[in-house]
Lab assay of single mutants.
Amino acid sequence: MISNAKIARINELAAKAKAGVITEEEKAEQQKLRQEYLK
């Protein structure tokens, strides 16, 4: 099960992506976390 901290990070990265200020490194982290969440 995914931790609350990881869910919070997913939401934080989603907000950054929506604002258009996300880095390529953060995009990769976001994809990794989303895949983990979906498992």
Rank of each mutant, 00 (worst) to 15 (best):
M1L: 11
I2T: 08
S3R: 04
S3A: 12
S3M: 12
S3P: 05
S3C: 10
N4H: 13
N4R: 11
N4W: 14
A5M: 08
A5D: 13
A5W: 11
A5I: 08
A5P: 10
A5C: 06
K6G: 05
K6A: 11
K6E: 07
K6H: 10
K6M: 15
I7R: 11
I7Y: 07
A8T: 10
A8K: 14
A8M: 13
A8F: 07
A8G: 08
A8W: 08
R9S: 01
I10L: 15
I10M: 15
I10F: 12
N11G: 04
N11C: 15
E12M: 05
E12D: 05
E12H: 06
E12K: 04
L13M: 03
L13Q: 00
L13R: 00
L13K: 00
L13C: 02
A15R: 09
A15I: 05
A15H: 05
A15F: 07
A15G: 05
K16A: 05
K16R: 06
K16V: 02
A17Y: 07
A17S: 14
A17W: 07
A17P: 00
K18R: 11
K18I: 09
K18P: 00
K18Y: 08
A19D: 07
A19W: 08
A19H: 09
A19N: 13
G20Q: 04
G20Y: 03
G20I: 00
V21G: 05
V21Y: 05
V21A: 06
V21I: 14
I22N: 01
I22K: 00
I22H: 00
T23F: 00
T23W: 01
T23V: 01
E24C: 07
E24I: 10
E24D: 10
E25F: 06
E25W: 05
E25G: 07
E25R: 07
E25M: 08
E25I: 08
E26G: 00
E26Y: 01
E26C: 02
E26W: 00
E26S: 00
K27F: 05
K27I: 12
K27H: 06
K27N: 05
K27Q: 05
A28E: 09
A28W: 06
A28T: 10
A28S: 09
A28R: 14
E29A: 01
E29K: 00
E29P: 00
E29C: 02
E29I: 02
Q30W: 13
Q30A: 15
Q30E: 08
Q30K: 03
Q31M: 10
Q31W: 08
Q31S: 09
K32F: 11
K32P: 00
K32N: 09
K32M: 13
K32Q: 10
L33P: 00
L33E: 00
L33S: 02
L33D: 01
R34P: 00
R34I: 15
R34C: 15
R34S: 12
R34W: 15
Q35R: 12
Q35C: 14
Q35P: 02
Q35G: 06
E36P: 03
E36R: 03
E36D: 10
E36L: 06
Y37Q: 05
Y37G: 07
L38Q: 09
L38D: 14
L38N: 13
K39V: 13
K39P: 14
K39N: 15
K39Q: 15
K39M: 15
K39I: 14
